[in-house]
Design a protein around this nucleic acid. Structure first.
Lengths: 172, 172
DNA sequence: AACATCTACTTGAAGTCTCAACTTCCACTG
DNA sequence: CAGTGGAAGTTGAGACTTCAAGTAGATGTT
């Protein structure tokens, strides 16, 4: 008979967004579009790279020995390995990252932050933090900041590709 | 003497993010990256276009006579006119949008949603709404939804190009 | 009218991202 | 140890975005 499953798009009546939900959703889309654009422009102008690339350098800077396996870096940055491959190629051309073979796994590659890369980061981090502050933190109350963190945490968790067991590869 | 202005990156000590602020910011970046990716994939697979393009069709569908001047559409969607130009060219190729000259201003162009475009929208809106619900609204309490709307509204407003200058010192 | 300046929109090239192969290597089975 | 399947990473083509420069029409000034 198949009458009315609750949440599937295949069902008869889609659960449209209420007016209030629409307002929220549009605010979200507007804000994220404008902000990503803003940060991309700021970083492109000052540091010569888009926001995602900057994020990659940051992840590397925080990693032990300033290096990360490609797959792990991709997972951390929430991007595909393919995208990362292209990105690292570009960053390598800039001299900010270098690739190194993994001794224990001949398929593996490390992305390693170079001294030059570290330097670029040091030079441009203040400007970036400042941009983020001005656009976000300076405009929100502490409660709103806390709220934002919780909400985004929930959304991110819900979209994480297959978190079950992926953390514990040694259990397989 | 120029000692320590509070919020400029040009100054000596940049105001780094606290640990808590960093957690919030990373949650934000993760969530927005994952979500945009998720929606892009869903729409590309089902409707054959990225999320932004879908958004353009929606704006047109809501406009009087299903048409909008290019500049206005760009403003509404928070994208550059150049990007819009390319996008509309593509949507035109799909037969979902058509251009029309503006009678009162010979430089002007209207982007007009075609019947085919309206149809594509009708067919794929349920799936999209469903994706948004599952990723966002179904996971948040009403208070969190309200919070999200307020917060994103504030951030968007701060970045709106129209709201020039009065708020923040642009010292660069 | 002539001129400069502004606005609306487009264009092409270079950079980035996606998707679907593809290569190479690892791990496991028999 | 051959064979199979999976994992790590890359590649190239096509799609999308950005940036700077372009055309053309509108507006304002003298």
């Amino acid at each position: 008979m198949n009458t009315a499953p609750a949440s599937s798009a295949a069902a008869g009546e889609p659960r449209w967004l209420t007016d209030e939900e629409q307002r929220v959703w549009r605010a979200y889309v507007d804000a994220t579009t404008l902000l990503e654009d803003h940060l991309d422009r700021q970083l492109q102008r000052d540091a010569g790279m888009p926001h995602v690339y900057y994020g990659l350098l940051v992840k590397l800077a925080e990693a032990p020995r300033r290096r990360l396996r490609m797959t792990e870096l991709a997972k951390d940055a929430k991007i595909t390995r393919s995208r990362l491959s292209h990105a690292v190629a570009r960053l390598e051309k800039n001299g900010w990252v270098r690739r190194e073979d993994c001794p224990s796994d001949k398929r593996g590659q490390f992305a390693v932050l170079t001294d030059e890369g570290t330097d670029v980061l040091r030079r441009h981090a203040p400007g970036h933090v400042d941009a983020v502050r001005q656009a976000v933190f300076d405009r929100l109350t502490p409660e709103q900041q806390k709220s934002l963190g919780e909400i985004m945490g929930i959304v991110a968790e819900g979209l994480q590709p297959s978190e079950a067991g992926a953390d514990l590869p040694w259990l397989r």
